[in-house]
Amino acid sequence: PEEVRRLVEELYRKGVSPEQVKKILKKQGIDEREIEKVLRRIG
């Protein structure tokens, strides 16, 4: 979803590592598979 992409990109631009991005967003209840999809697209 758009909102997940925005959150991931925001953290990524701040220099947060992909592993940390995953941890942070998982705590917020976001599906890990969604996060990984976005990270793959960015990375």
Rank of each mutant, 00 (worst) to 15 (best):
P1V: 09
P1Y: 14
P1R: 09
P1Q: 12
P1D: 11
P1T: 12
P1M: 12
P1W: 13
P1S: 14
P1K: 08
P1F: 14
E2W: 11
E2M: 13
E2R: 09
E2H: 10
E2Y: 09
E2S: 11
E2I: 11
E3G: 09
E3S: 10
E3T: 11
E3N: 10
E3P: 07
E3M: 11
E3D: 11
E3K: 09
E3A: 11
E3F: 10
V4D: 01
V4N: 02
V4W: 13
V4G: 01
V4S: 02
V4K: 01
V4M: 10
V4C: 04
V4I: 14
V4Q: 02
V4P: 02
V4T: 07
R5D: 09
R5F: 15
R5H: 11
R5T: 12
R5K: 12
R5Q: 13
R5A: 14
R5P: 03
R5L: 12
R5S: 08
R6D: 04
R6V: 07
R6N: 06
R6S: 06
R6T: 07
R6I: 08
R6F: 07
R6M: 09
R6C: 04
R6A: 09
L7K: 08
L7R: 09
L7G: 01
L7F: 07
L7T: 04
L7Q: 08
L7E: 02
L7H: 04
L7P: 00
V8M: 03
V8G: 01
V8A: 06
V8N: 00
V8S: 01
V8K: 00
E9H: 11
E9D: 06
E9S: 06
E9V: 14
E9R: 13
E9F: 12
E9M: 15
E9P: 00
E9C: 15
E10G: 06
E10I: 12
E10P: 01
E10S: 12
E10Q: 13
E10F: 14
E10V: 09
E10D: 10
E10R: 12
E10W: 13
E10Y: 14
L11Q: 02
L11W: 05
L11K: 00
L11T: 01
L11C: 02
L11I: 02
L11H: 15
L11V: 01
L11G: 00
Y12R: 09
Y12F: 13
Y12V: 12
Y12E: 03
Y12W: 10
Y12S: 05
Y12K: 04
Y12Q: 05
Y12P: 00
Y12A: 04
Y12N: 03
Y12D: 02
R13P: 00
R13G: 06
R13S: 09
R13I: 05
R13N: 07
R13M: 08
R13H: 08
R13Q: 07
R13Y: 14
K14P: 02
K14A: 14
K14V: 06
K14S: 10
K14D: 05
K14E: 06
K14Q: 10
K14R: 15
K14L: 13
K14M: 13
K14Y: 08
G15C: 04
G15D: 03
G15S: 03
G15M: 04
G15Y: 03
G15K: 06
G15R: 05
G15I: 01
V16R: 12
V16K: 14
V16Q: 08
V16E: 06
S17W: 05
S17G: 10
S17I: 06
S17H: 10
S17R: 10
S17Y: 06
P18S: 11
P18Q: 08
P18K: 12
P18V: 11
P18L: 10
P18I: 11
P18M: 11
P18W: 10
P18N: 08
P18G: 08
P18D: 08
P18F: 10
E19K: 10
E19T: 12
E19H: 13
E19L: 12
E19S: 13
E19N: 11
E19Y: 11
E19R: 13
E19P: 07
E19I: 10
Q20F: 09
Q20H: 09
Q20N: 12
Q20K: 09
Q20T: 11
Q20R: 09
Q20G: 10
Q20L: 12
V21S: 02
V21G: 00
V21I: 15
V21A: 06
V21D: 00
V21W: 03
V21H: 00
K22H: 08
K22T: 11
K22L: 15
K22A: 08
K22E: 04
K22D: 01
K22M: 15
K23I: 14
K23F: 09
K23W: 09
K23Q: 13
K23H: 13
K23T: 13
K23C: 15
K23G: 08
K23N: 12
K23A: 14
I24N: 03
I24D: 03
I24W: 07
I24V: 09
I24H: 04
I24E: 05
I24F: 09
I24P: 00
I24R: 06
I24L: 12
I24M: 12
I24G: 01
I24A: 05
L25G: 01
L25E: 00
L25M: 04
L25Q: 00
K26Y: 12
K26D: 03
K26N: 05
K26L: 14
K26Q: 09
K26I: 14
K26S: 13
K26R: 13
K27P: 04
K27G: 12
K27L: 14
K27V: 09
K27T: 09
K27D: 11
K27I: 10
K27Q: 11
K27N: 10
Q28T: 08
Q28H: 07
Q28P: 01
Q28N: 07
Q28Y: 12
Q28K: 12
Q28R: 14
Q28L: 12
Q28W: 12
Q28F: 11
Q28C: 04
Q28G: 05
Q28D: 05
G29Q: 03
G29D: 03
G29T: 01
G29S: 03
G29P: 01
G29V: 01
G29Y: 02
G29K: 03
G29F: 03
I30F: 14
I30E: 02
I30V: 08
I30H: 10
I30L: 12
I30G: 01
I30Y: 14
I30S: 01
I30M: 11
I30Q: 02
D31M: 05
D31E: 07
D31S: 09
D31R: 04
D31P: 11
D31Q: 05
D31N: 07
D31Y: 03
D31K: 05
E32Y: 02
E32S: 06
E32M: 05
E32A: 07
E32H: 04
E32F: 02
R33K: 12
R33M: 08
R33A: 13
R33S: 10
R33H: 12
R33T: 11
R33D: 14
R33L: 12
R33Y: 06
R33C: 05
R33P: 03
E34H: 04
E34M: 11
E34Q: 07
E34R: 04
E34N: 04
E34I: 14
E34T: 14
E34D: 10
E34C: 06
I35Q: 01
I35C: 01
I35F: 02
I35A: 02
I35D: 00
I35R: 00
I35M: 02
I35V: 07
I35Y: 02
I35H: 00
I35W: 02
E36T: 04
E36A: 03
E36G: 02
E36R: 03
E36D: 11
E36V: 04
E36F: 02
E36S: 04
E36L: 05
E36Y: 03
E36Q: 03
E36K: 04
K37Q: 09
K37F: 05
K37Y: 06
K37L: 13
K37M: 10
K37T: 07
K37H: 08
K37P: 02
K37A: 13
V38G: 02
V38N: 06
V38C: 05
V38P: 00
V38E: 13
V38D: 01
V38W: 14
V38K: 01
V38M: 11
V38H: 07
V38Q: 08
V38S: 05
L39M: 08
L39W: 01
L39E: 01
L39H: 01
L39Q: 04
L39K: 01
L39Y: 02
L39G: 01
R40S: 08
R40D: 15
R40I: 12
R40T: 08
R40M: 10
R40Y: 07
R40W: 06
R40P: 03
R40H: 13
R41W: 15
R41M: 15
R41F: 15
R41P: 09
R41Q: 15
R41I: 15
R41V: 15
R41T: 15
R41E: 15
R41D: 15
R41L: 15
R41N: 15
I42T: 04
I42N: 03
I42Q: 04
I42Y: 07
I42R: 06
I42A: 05
I42G: 04
G43D: 15
G43H: 11
G43L: 07
G43V: 15
G43P: 10
G43N: 10
G43M: 07
G43F: 08
G43K: 11
